[in-house]
Each structure stands twice: as C-alpha cells, then as structure tokens.
C-alpha cells in the first residue's frame, strides 16, 4: 500500500519535472514578461534591474535550479504579474473550477448511466439505437463550438440564462461556492452542461458495454430464467457490477474535466484556474503556469489514488499492494 502510494507519487514527480522543464525552456525562448509590462520610457538600467529582480537574467539552468530549491521549501515563487504567491492565486481560483467540473461530472453520471443501462438492455430497440446515435453525436461535438451555440441560443436569443461569468458566491466551510444560490446555478448551468456533454456520451457507451457484458453472464441468465423482475436484476446485479469500470473511468474523467475546463472557462468567462492558465500563458507568467501544472498533477494523482481505493472496495478481488502493485 505504502509502496503503491510512493510509486504514484514518483510518477507525478516525473510528469512535473518534464512539464516544468518544458515551461521553463518555452518561456525562456519566447521572451520575458518585463518586455510586456515595463513602462516604455524606462531606461536600460531600470529594465535590467526589473529583469534581475525576477531572476530572468540568469541562465536557464540557474533559473530552474532556483525553482527546484524553492519547491523543496514549499515555495513556488511569486506571480510576475500579480506579485502574489503563485500557489495562492491557483487556490483562489480552484473552487470555481472544481465546482463546474463536479457539477458536470454529476450531470454526466445522472444522465449517462441510466441512458447507458437502457441502451445496454435493449440494444436492438429504437430507443437503444437512438441513445447510441446520440452518444456518437456527443462524442463528435466540438465542445467550444457547442458552448458558443449555447450562449447564442439561451443567452442572446432567448435571454433565459446569463452568457457567462460566475454567480454570487457564499462562504461555505471556508470555500467560496456559487452553488448555494439560485443565481449561482443560473450561471453554472450552461458551462456545466457544456462540459458534461462529452462525458455523458462516454458514460453511455461505457455503461452500455458493461451492461451487455454482464447480461451475458450465466448468473444473470439464470436470474432472468427464474423470473426475477428486470428492475431487480438491474438494481442488484447489473448496476453493482457495471459500477466497477465506471468508477475507474470516473476518476480519470474528473481529471480530464478539470483539464477541459480550460476551454469551457474561456468560452463562458468562468473565473476558474483554467482561465488563469490561459491568461498567464499570454502574459508569460511562468510561476503561475508551473504552479497550475503542479496543482493539477497532484490533483490527478490523488484522484487516481482514491479511485484505486474505491475500486478495491467495490471489487473484492482487487487488493492493493501485494500482487497488484
């Protein structure tokens, strides 16, 4: 178990090392934020002082070494643009991203799993076909374009929902959340649905596939032959067994929702950390980009870890550690 956690952590460190090197080299090659932000009338000495103050006058390897030393002390550096600890900026924006990602995940679960069950039970009926067709469509929809269409339809033409932004937030257990108010939900609805679309399709396919797999098992056939009510079969056997692969995928998918929120946040002007990432990339605010990567990688690792634990609970055959690791 401990070994397993350690392996995961090492993996995360490897990802982080590669990505942070990339970002350092990239920003180094692209230019420096002082070019963007310094006053045009600043003299050469002033300019040089600014570059030095941000440590950008050093060779690339020194900059990177400084970053690693800082990291070991739990310090990811200050944002060039905000003058605030980069990690602090990320944490400020994180609730918004997690909120919309989580809402999307719940929507995907609530609609994808039942639809997938139906499609799995009745693959040849019109409804089964229709659901599968829908899922292929959902797979093919370019997320950002659908977002634009949502805005055009629901915000501009019909005027039912706001075109973007986050609703008022309330302090809940130390976190600012917007899902506690109706106004918050009005803002959340379009981005969350937009983000969920792709995952709904995925869950439909996944659930349908594992449902069919299970239906072919002998014990289900037996249960059917015994005259057990279909609803009971679903509830007792199919759902429980279909849940195993779903949980695995869900973990991964929550991670990818957080990543794809970059796109949705840009379309709907949602003030999450994805939008912060895009803004920071355009301003060459390297500490924030690196801090974002760190947080996201750690997030993925912990989600995967939790998923593996859940997996073990749901499927007694799986034991972590031992032979599985």
């Amino acid at each position: 178990m401990a070994w397993y956690a350690l392996a995961r952590l090492l993996q995360a460190l490897a990802v982080l090392a590669v990505m942070s090197l990339l970002v350092f080299a990239g920003v180094y090659a692209l230019g420096n934020p002082v070019d963007l932000l310094v006053d045009p009338n600043a003299g050469a000495a002033d300019y040089a002082r600014r570059v030095a103050a941000l440590g950008l006058d050093q060779p690339l390897w020194v900059q990177y070494a400084r970053f690693v030393v800082g990291l070991l002390h739990g310090d990811l550096g200050n944002s060039f643009v905000h003058g605030t600890p980069a990690l602090h900026l990320i944490f400020e924006r994180m609730p918004a991203t997690l909120e919309v990602s989580f809402a999307a995940l719940m929507m995907a679960l609530a609609s994808g799993v039942p639809l997938g069950l139906v499609a799995g039970f009745k693959p040849q009926s019109w409804i089964g076909r229709a659901i599968r067709a829908l899922s292929v469509l959902g797979f093919s929809l370019p997320t950002f374009w659908v977002g634009l269409m949502f805005i055009m339809l629901f915000a501009v033409e019909l005027g039912w929902l706001p075109a973007g932004g986050r609703g008022p937030t309330e302090h809940v257990l130390g976190i600012d959340l917007s899902i506690t108010t109706l106004e918050g939900w009005r803002h959340l609805l379009l981005p969350a649905v937009n983000l969920a679309l792709f995952k709904i399709s995925l869950l439909i396919r996944l659930t349908a596939a594992s449902t069919q797999e299970i239906l072919r098992q002998d014990y289900i056939r037996f249960a059917r032959a015994k005259g057990l009510h279909p609803v009971r079969i679903v509830g007792l056997h199919v759902l429980k067994n279909a849940l195993v692969p779903i949980v695995t995928v869900l973990g991964l998918e929550f991670g990818s929702l957080v990543a794809f929120a970059v796109v949705t946040e840009s379309v709907f002007a949602w003030p999450g950390m994805g939008k912060l990432l895009i803004d920071s990339i355009t301003l060459l605010d390297r500490p924030v980009v690196v801090a974002y990567l760190l947080v996201v990688v750690l997030l993925f690792v912990s989600i995967n870890f939790i998923v593996d634990l859940l997996y073990g609970l749901l499927d007694p055959r799986v034991r972590l550690g031992g032979a599985q690791a």
Binding site: P33, V34, L36, L37, V38, D39, P40, N41, A42, G43, D46, R50, A53, L54, N78, F80, V81, G83
Partner: peptide, 9 residues
C-alpha cells in the same frame, strides 16, 4: 522591487 512594470520612469 518585484514589480515587472515599475512606475520609476
């Protein structure tokens, strides 16, 4: 000192 675009000009 950590200002990327100072007012010193």
């Amino acid at each position: 000192v950590n200002s990327p675009g100072p007012f010193t000009s």
